[in-house]
């Protein structure tokens, strides 16, 4: 691994299972006509030989059509899926910001959920203690923080979720199209928070469809299609590919 390199993917291949199960399979077994499916029929290739190298402090955008493998790539970087072939090295602790406002324990209070989520993201007791106040302040729901989450509105949950993850101060931040949570006021606030994170010393990978967001924040943008990286990091080149591909 090179000195400044913080994320390195070499020839990363990831297969994803196709879902063919249930009654169909039972019928096949009962009628004795179990079809042996080939590997290609049971799996599809979500990532097909990805090579990427991201340096410390860089802000990298990834653009691509739906189903091109963007989110899967982010999950591989977060360590959620292990590559089937190839290798990935990450020098630090990645935090994936996706699906904000989900995964709360409905019967626990907002405060208890902050502590639980913080420890899920690997923060120690003292780190959790420090971030608790910041989260409550930023989310703007101090009044309800000791009420159970099930009494919260969807917007409140989203705000709390965003506040928690953005307070984690990750060294490596992986963002999956989350710029729009809550009302107008909160959106402005969260956009500013993300810009703050991006401009700090964190390394950031952003997956988005929005040209303006990527243009504003990123120093490099890659276009991906069918599980492969198609461009070389140049922003205009990536947008050009993305738009030609869509047409």
């Amino acid at each position: 691994m090179k000195e400044k390199e913080i994320i390195a993917l070499s020839n990363v291949v990831l297969d994803y299972p196709r879902k063919t199960k249930g009654v169909g399979l039972l019928r096949e077994i009962l009628t004795g006509r179990v079809k042996r499916k080939s590997r290609a029929e049971r799996w599809f290739r979500a990532l097909d030989g990805i090579n990427l190298s991201i340096n410390k402090g860089e802000v990298v955008g990834i653009i691509g059509a739906n189903g091109s493998g963007k989110s899967t790539l982010l999950r591989v970087m977060a360590g959620i899926y292990a590559p089937d072939e190839g290798e990935i090295k990450i020098n630090g602790r990645p935090t994936l910001l996706a699906g904000v406002g989900t995964g709360f324990q409905q019967d626990l209070t907002g405060r208890e959920n902050i502590r639980l989520q913080s420890s899920i993201y690997g923060r120690s007791k003292s780190e959790t203690h420090e971030l608790e106040e910041d989260v409550i302040e930023f989310s703007g729901i101090r009044e309800f923080i000791d009420d159970p989450i099930r009494t919260y509105s969807a917007g409140m949950k989203a705000r709390l979720g965003f506040a928690i993850i953005s307070s984690l101060n990750p060294e490596i931040l992986l963002l999956d199209e989350v710029m729009s949570v809550g009302d107008y006021e909160f959106r402005k606030k969260s956009r500013a928070r993300i810009e703050e994170l991006v401009k700090g010393d964190a390394t950031v990978v952003i997956v988005s469809h929005s040209k303006s967001i990527l243009n504003n924040l990123c120093s490099k943008v890659y276009a991906i299609d069918n599980g492969s990286v198609m461009t070389h990091g140049d922003i205009d080149e990536a947008f050009e590919f993305y738009e030609s591909d869509k047409a």
């Binding site: 292990a82 590559p83 072939e85 290798e87 090295k89 630090g92």
Partner: peptide, 13 residues
């Protein structure tokens, strides 16, 4: 926070 030396590696096998 992760120290300088903790490199996460995810290999296939």
């Amino acid at each position: 926070m992760g120290g300088e030396n903790d490199v996460l590696e995810f290999k296939a096998e």
